[in-house]
Design a protein around this nucleic acid. Sequence first.
DNA 1: GATGAATGAGTATTCATTCAT
DNA 2: GATGAATGAATACTCATTCAT
Lengths: 198, 198, 198, 198
Amino acid sequence: MRSFIEQARRAQIIGAAIETIAEHGYANASLARIAKHADISKGVISYHFAGKEELIEQVVTQVFSAIVEEVAPRVTAAPGPREALREHIIAVGEYVLAHRTQLMALSEIINGARSTEGKPLYGISSSEDLYESLELYFASGQDSGVFRHFDRRVMAVTLQSAIDGAFGYWVVHPEHDLAAHMTELADHIDRAVLADPA
Amino acid sequence: MRSFIEQARRAQIIGAAIETIAEHGYANASLARIAKHADISKGVISYHFAGKEELIEQVVTQVFSAIVEEVAPRVTAAPGPREALREHIIAVGEYVLAHRTQLMALSEIINGARSTEGKPLYGISSSEDLYESLELYFASGQDSGVFRHFDRRVMAVTLQSAIDGAFGYWVVHPEHDLAAHMTELADHIDRAVLADPA
Amino acid sequence: MRSFIEQARRAQIIGAAIETIAEHGYANASLARIAKHADISKGVISYHFAGKEELIEQVVTQVFSAIVEEVAPRVTAAPGPREALREHIIAVGEYVLAHRTQLMALSEIINGARSTEGKPLYGISSSEDLYESLELYFASGQDSGVFRHFDRRVMAVTLQSAIDGAFGYWVVHPEHDLAAHMTELADHIDRAVLADPA
Amino acid sequence: MRSFIEQARRAQIIGAAIETIAEHGYANASLARIAKHADISKGVISYHFAGKEELIEQVVTQVFSAIVEEVAPRVTAAPGPREALREHIIAVGEYVLAHRTQLMALSEIINGARSTEGKPLYGISSSEDLYESLELYFASGQDSGVFRHFDRRVMAVTLQSAIDGAFGYWVVHPEHDLAAHMTELADHIDRAVLADPA
DNA sequence: GATGAATGAGTATTCATTCAT
DNA sequence: GATGAATGAATACTCATTCAT
């Protein structure tokens, strides 16, 4: 059981890590820079986290679960798979809009963090859960005849990539209307999954 | 004018860089490791390239132009925008299948290489050309009434992301049938862009 | 605010730098050599100083201000410009005799330290203050009629060069009587500046 | 016996070395840079000179003997030691004015070139000849009673330093009137050496 | 005679981690 | 709990020299 002050320190450090990574990129986010940003000594990080790996892992889990926490209930509340799919896209878009820094950090980590042998630590391999949950909507829609037949994994990868890509584009072009982009994307996916009219 | 042996060495080093980056990731691809992989002294790289930046730049341009060289003619040969779009997706998929290592290296560089201030060197911002060329198909199809009206930039970003995502998924899951994936993706896009029947 | 131990380490490193530079010359005084001389790890220097530049800068300011601190009061105490001039030469000579290593290091730095483009970092251009202070004596002596009319900048450059030269000769020929040299030099300068008898 | 073409090549390389050293400083004058400046391959230098040391040595000898060649006859032609001394100063000044680059290179080498152990290669220790020749004038003047009694070595060091200092100042301040400076310096030295009137 | 290629030791600097206080 | 200090390996890059062609 962690003490309260311990938890507060960890939260503070995680927050500083997020901001530092978002601003300078994963490769340039040394512990020294994160510590400086948090206005604490370098040693504090080592004291509260087993190593850099654990800190990064905490950042990922925290950001990731925050998204799920917000998006999941909205999707669940949708009346059917078609609406759920649309809601998923829109909800993620809104979350991203409101938490740019966190998502930038997450994105940085996902394609920057590597094991000592060079393998991605949080890459696509760790998105299995995500794909599976998307596939549930697809299956449900296909079973009820609303969606046409298609490979669910391919669609899941396509959708997830398109969402990531929208975010990535918006980060580089902040004037881009992300909400409208997501609405358009929802339309495209809708057309791609919908069963042909009899 | 570069001597023949000079060109050969540069090609060898570029090849070694591609393999090293693909295997160990961009961040772990130090000049020392690349040199070791090529079984040459570290200094040779410095001798033939102005710096790491130039080497990476050469890798990017080489891989990138090789793709364009193969894909472009096939797309151009398509009878109409709808076929061109499908051909683009299929052709890229086939190229990627045949040149996994090169594309992995390219992907690594694109989301790993940063300027000293942490900004991506070859990121989305440099994909503008790519987006614009995709938009040309879309515009052509829309003008002829084959494609429905949609935001061309959003569709370009979506398609490109979906292609990248397919590749990324296949890298992690080499048993995944990439060719089939691309065919499916082509179908999805086809449905997303096609004009509604009168 | 620097901690005590921090100050001590910095002083130790500065001391090691002075000795290393004096012994091996500026060009051969790498951080590695300085660290070895101080019997510490290379990283310690980087930890306590922003870079080599800052270390060298500290050496220069420290040695330089130590000289001024000792020489200035003695000169100020002189009854007139003629005596002040003599006292300046004698006092510098005595200081140099007692701090050979430090002065050798200073001299090494002054004509060894270069910017990346090759321009001296602490060269003659930064001696402006020194020349101006010498010119004040000359002006004072000329105004009171003790000194004859001469170009004050030329005399300042000449005097400073002669002092530097005496030091340089003594470094190479340690058996040379530097004190006597300085007394002679004071006589020469005295003759050079004195007004002709009526 | 060196062939004509061999001599020409050596002269070309020496010239390039002089210009490179004068422009970029001794420390930044790598063989690569010198070769580039001469528009020849790096290997050529190694072919014609045993090593960097020999090249530098040749530069020093060449520049140095060129000065002596010009100055010596003018001094020898002077009617007496007093005039010879003045002529020495003026002649050196004029030579320096007309051969700035060569002298800058010489100066760079004198206080930049070091043996592997860090000892100066062309420093004061190698000026013994120069001092001795100056001392001859002084002795001659003292013997004839024109000059007062003073330590000849101290005076030689002083004069030589003052000349070097004038040059160094002029390099940094090219608008400085070097000729006038030398005339003033000649006056100062004259006063310093002259016997007191009976 | 001349060249371009290659080497290996050397440069300053950065960094995650460890540890005594 | 927290800190500043220290480490040692790793980074890209430079350079004088050697050598086969």
